[in-house]
């Protein structure tokens, strides 16, 4: 079974002044065939940098990527077979397709590059279009990007990624540019393709709800680090890291309105009430744009539970089986300190 293993990936960007900006800080994870791993976090947390580094569009500063236990080089001809197996779907289907070329052109090139014969290529294009439900394929392949809706364009982008018959698909916010009513169709399509082709899918998003619904595992990223990871239901229903709890409480809750309509006050899922001061503190601190200094926890300035020991770098600690958080709260001696967490975590 194929797997893609990322170990201690570090990506730094040089800055005109001062130390380089560390966008990805010692990140490790494994993508396995037939599974979807979701990577969530706010803008600027490093999600897209990981995708770009994994797609070898961005050089890593340190760390290794192994494909089926073989080290993947940073660049060079040897990457061709890697690229065949690892493909990307980008966020903006309006920018990722060339407006001057037809749909067929977009699909023909990867097919030819990866060894399909010219004689059969049109048939293969039609098969690809059919596999992403762009029908009738013979008609669709003649179209140009401006003749397609956003959802159709994203289907073309997915078909293009599937052209070399990859084992890994890295989808960087594949639906955030699309309309709500279209999003689920694209996500369902990705999910079906994953099952049919036994793909390993990395789903990068800032939307916790779809992350939970379409992935088996979730990693939460904050300022370049994975702060929490685990089975998706564990992470969303029982968020451990204060940042994940903040994310979960900030997401829209139509259920609250439903509960309100039903006469209940929805307290169980609400982050309101007693935690207003926490939120207030988090907000003010967030605006101060704290610079992460030294080894301190990156979330320290916004964290309502911060203590002295948070100035030391927090390790990844086990919250429950297979569920880890990079937070001192989960050191065995510290569990009692989680005061007030009940209201936010549930």
């Amino acid at each position: 079974m194929s797997q893609l293993e990322v170990a201690d990936m570090v990506v730094e960007f040089a800055q005109r002044r001062g130390a380089p900006l560390r966008a990805v800080d010692h990140v490790s994870f494994v993508l396995r065939a037939g599974q979807t791993l979701a990577l969530v976090g706010e803008s600027g947390s490093g999600k897209s940098t990981i995708v770009r580094a994994l797609g070898r569009l961005q050089e890593t500063t340190a760390g290794t990527v192994r494909l089926d236990n073989e080290l993947v080089p940073q660049k060079g001809r040897a990457l061709k077979s890697y690229r065949r197996r690892v493909q990307l779907v980008f966020q903006d289907p309006f920018a990722s397709l060339n407006p001057a070329y037809s749909v067929a052109h977009h699909l023909r090139r990867p097919l030819l590059v990866h060894g399909h014969t010219r004689a059969r290529v049109d048939q293969d294009i039609e098969a690809l279009l059919a596999s992403v439900n762009l029908v009738p394929p013979a008609e669709m392949m003649k179209r140009f990007p401006h003749e397609l809706s956003g959802g159709q364009r994203q289907r073309v982008a997915i078909a293009r990624a599937l052209a070399p018959n990859p084992d890994f698909l890295l989808a960087d916010e594949p639906v955030s540019m699309l309309d709500v009513s279209i999003r689920l169709e694209i996500l369902n399509l990705l999910d079906d393709l994953k099952s049919q082709r036994n793909l390993a899918l990395l789903y990068v998003t800032h939307d916790l709800a779809t992350a939970r619904h379409f992935s088996s595992e979730i990693m939460v990223m904050y300022r370049g680090q994975i702060v929490e990871r685990g089975a998706s239901d564990d992470v969303i229903l029982h968020p451990a890291h204060p940042y994940t709890r903040l994310l979960a409480s900030a997401a829209p809750h139509p259920e609250r309105a439903v509960l309100a309509a039903a006469g209940s006050n929805g307290e169980g899922t609400s982050a309101g009430g007693g935690t207003v001061t926490d939120e207030e503190r988090t907000r003010r601190a967030g605006e101060a744009r704290e610079a992460a200094t030294g080894n301190a926890c990156r979330f320290i300035a916004r964290c309502p539970f911060a203590t002295e020991q948070c100035h030391r770098e927090p390790p990844e600690l086990e919250v429950s089986t297979g569920h880890q958080a990079r937070c001192w709260l989960y050191g065995s001696a510290n569990v009692p300190e989680r005061q007030g967490s009940g209201a936010r975590a549930s």
């Binding site: 009513s181 279209i182 999003r183 689920l184 169709e185 694209i186 996500l187 369902n188 916790l208 709800a209 779809t210 939970r212 619904h213 239901d233 969303i236 229903l237 979960a248 997401a251 809750h253 139509p254 259920e255 899922t269």
Partner: peptide, 12 residues
């Protein structure tokens, strides 16, 4: 999809 509700088949 709702964040905390049951997982269910979702359709656009």
């Amino acid at each position: 999809p709702t964040l905390f509700g049951d997982r269910k088949e979702l359709a656009g």
